[in-house]
């Protein structure tokens, strides 16, 4: 009975969500569209970071490296052939004559990043805690250095511009919904239980037959896949990719979003990503108004510190959103 009710609420809220997407996409102004797209991309990034860092407990600081890989793969695939021949002389001939659409570019970006995550993960995931954090940060730096110096494929520091802006709100919101659905399903499956067990106690998990390194690798690879898809969406939203875009600022931003939402809570990550996107935009407007530049970063940092001090587990801890919460507010539910 309750279950059916909840399914109904979920359908209604999904319906409302996609109505909002339709309205924004058709009638919204460019600014709101841009912010909403970024919001959805942050949701994808935060939720997939939560899978590797929050659910299975890998202290990865390198996820944005996978976003960078995804963005570059998509940029190279979707750049018009004329520009490709001109700029990206290192590409094999057959690649410089084709131009792919967003969907195949996204999927290829995800698969390539997942493959790299698999190879990198085999090595890095032998380490845990601080050691994993340092090596994954190293991975992020390597990706950036490669992007900066592989002139004939990435154009180095100049970046690749004039990308077709295929990304719209339908793409970003659909991918965000799929990401949330997939990650939630994983958590509630035997795989997810194994992941949580590995996070809680590695040795105990192995003692009940869980192949802990493999489970960690699985989460890492899936996380890299969705992160790279977000990168592909980002590239075709902004129209430019450059090495500096995917570095420490974004890394910190999504870690903050994840921690404040609650490590281990997918819905927490969703709410947090949405909230922080809005907060950042409001602060930017405020900053422009009073003309004290940099104040938004300070306020942002203070909000983060306050949450950590008063709610160290994040706003949602490791719980998930439940419709029953509304029962306390109104008897209607």
């Amino acid at each position: 009975m309750n279950k059916n009710k909840h399914a109904l609420y979920l359908m209604i809220s999904m319906g409302l969500f996609f109505c909002a997407v339709y309205l924004l996409d058709a009638y919204g102004n460019h600014y709101y569209q841009r912010v909403s797209n970024l919001m959805m991309i942050y949701v994808i990034l935060t939720v997939s970071l939560n899978l590797s860092n929050g659910i299975v407990g890998i202290s990865s600081l390198g996820q944005i490296g996978f976003m960078s890989i995804g963005a570059y793969v998509s940029a190279i695939l979707t750049l018009p052939p004329g520009l490709k021949e001109h700029w990206l002389t290192g590409l094999p001939h057959w690649m410089s004559t084709i131009q792919s659409g967003l969907f195949p570019a996204m999927i290829l970006a995800g698969i390539l990043a997942a493959a790299i995550a698999f190879l990198v993960g085999i090595v890095i995931l032998r380490l845990q805690g601080v050691f994993a954090a340092v090596t994954t940060l190293g991975f992020l730096i390597i990706v950036k250095v490669v992007a900066e110096n592989w002139m004939t494929v990435t154009r180095g520091g100049r970046g690749i511009s004039s990308l077709p802006t295929y990304t719209n709100l339908w793409w970003t919101s659909a991918v965000a919904v799929i990401t949330v659905y997939v990650v939630l399903r994983i958590i509630r499956s035997p795989y997810g239980r194994s992941m949580l067990a590995v996070r809680e106690h590695d040795l105990a998990a192995q003692s009940i037959g869980i192949n802990a390194p493999r489970i960690r690798l699985l989460a890492f690879v899936i996380s890299a896949f969705f992160t790279a898809v977000a990168g592909a969406l980002w590239a075709n939203l902004i129209g430019v990719v450059s090495p500096g875009s995917f570095y420490l600022w974004l890394t910190l931003l999504i870690i903050i979003m994840m921690v404040v939402g609650g490590m281990g809570s997918v819905t927490g990550s969703v709410f947090s990503a949405i909230g922080f996107t809005i907060l950042l935009e409001l602060l930017r407007g405020f900053e422009n108004k009073i003309a004290v530049y940099g104040i938004s970063s300070i306020i942002f940092a203070i909000v983060f510190m306050l949450v950590i001090i008063f709610h160290p587990d994040g706003v949602m801890g490791d719980r998930e959103f439940s419709w029953d919460w509304f029962k306390r507010i109104t008897p209607l539910f």
Binding site: P190, R193, E200, H201, I210, D318
Partner: peptide, 29 residues
């Protein structure tokens, strides 16, 4: 004692029960 502290008591046992199960990823999705 090495329990999975944050997991529920029931989940602690379920995760152990699944040792001989081979669930495919797609069927879970």
């Amino acid at each position: 004692i090495c329990l999975f502290g944050k997991l529920s008591v029931l989940d602690n046992v379920i995760v152990s029960c699944q040792i001989h199960e081979r669930t495919s990823f797609l069927s879970a999705l």
